[in-house]
């Protein structure tokens, strides 16, 4: 019988004979659960992680056009090219503005709506359904709806502006307004999400806290500001992360506004730039380099979140 004495993490010796440990290992939950998570893990892992790895590799080549990629000479030329391109920096800036403005506005609006619906509103279920309704729609569809809303001649938005005595604005045609207009449309689509998350958070707070505040003589507004909302930090963090992920997918919305690879002027973000360089101009390596930087941006957003979750043991 082979006897090994490996030490466990606390430095103690495992004195069980090897055969026994093998038997235990095979019977153990790890081996028996492997088929369950192993297959999905393999599929997901190769799609996501092998994909990312390959993408990074391609970004180091000069791969473009219809020829096949050559991996013999790897360098950071494509990244240098991106950093030297004003289009890239504009797209990066737009991505950042979109990410931050969209997320913050959605959170604020979502919180306001959640507090509103938390005030014992009649039919609050139906109202909630309506507020979240836009989320069920594809970006492709909401882009069409907002094209119409923003139409300079007959769109509802400009109609409202004209009613106020101002002249109509071509929101999507004017680079000064286009990004703001896109953000507004996206807020319309996703603030309902923030509301649902906040509402769940609000409802998990026992009403006794509200009643205790009332008995202490605090006003409703004060109870929300001082007692209730500070407890919604976890909701805010998770809603913010998911909203940022939505924002990173805004590619589809922008593409659908024009139906071509170039979005309205002033709204080019890294995602649209990447797809355009790669799939319109077949500059695969350059597109891959931009994609890698987009990925780093996304990871930069979620890494603190995952760390936060891990620290609070909720992973």
């Amino acid at each position: 019988m082979v006897t090994q004495n490996p030490t466990d993490h606390a430095g103690r010796t495992d004195e069980r004979p090897f055969s026994e440990r093998l038997q235990h290992f095979v019977n153990g939950t790890f081996v028996r659960s492997l088929p369950f998570w192993g297959i999905p893990f393999l599929l997901m892992g190769s799609a996501v992680y092998a994909g990312i790895g390959w993408n990074v590799l391609i970004s180091l080549t000069d791969y473009e056009g219809l020829a096949s990629a050559s991996y013999s000479q790897l360098d950071f030329e494509m990244y240098a090219r991106a950093f030297g391109s004003s289009t890239f920096w504009t797209a990066a800036q737009n991505t950042f503005v979109l990410l931050v403005a969209f997320t913050v506005i959605c959170l604020v609006l979502g919180l306001a709506l959640a507090v509103l619906l938390d005030r014992n509103i009649r039919y609050s279920e139906s109202v909630q359904t309506i507020y979240v309704l836009p989320m069920a729609l594809s970006f492709v569809i909401t882009a069409q709806l907002w094209l119409w809303m923003y139409n300079p001649d007959s769109g509802l938005v400009n109609l409202a502006i004209k009613t106020l005595g101002l002249s109509s604005i071509d929101f999507l045609g004017n680079p000064k307004f286009a990004l703001a207009a896109v953000i507004f449309a996206l807020v319309w689509q996703f603030s309902g999400y923030a509301m649902v998350v906040y509402l769940a958070g609000l409802r998990s707070i026992p009403t006794s806290q509200f009643e205790a505040g009332k008995i202490d003589g605090a006003s409703t507004a004060r109870i929300y500001l001082r007692i209730i909302i500070p407890q919604l930090r976890a909701s805010s963090v998770s809603a913010a992360v998911v909203l940022m992920v939505f924002a990173l997918k805004a590619f589809t919305f922008l593409y659908s506004l024009t139906g071509v690879f170039r979005p309205p002027n002033g709204t080019d973000i890294l995602a649209t730039l990447m797809v355009r360089r790669a799939f319109k101009y077949t500059e695969w390596a350059y597109g891959a380099a931009i994609a890698t930087m987009l990925l780093l941006l996304a990871l930069g957003v979620i890494a603190p979140y995952l760390y936060y979750q891990h620290k609070h043991g909720s992973l």
């Binding site: 103690r12 004195e15 069980r16 026994e20 440990r21 235990h24 019977n27 153990g28």
Partner: peptide, 19 residues
């Protein structure tokens, strides 16, 4: 739970690592 060390026997049969 699997013991960190020691033995569990049922009727003199070692079952320490049995499922």
């Amino acid at each position: 739970e699997t013991p960190s060390s020691g033995q569990i026997r049922f009727d003199e049969t070692d079952v320490t690592y049995r499922v």
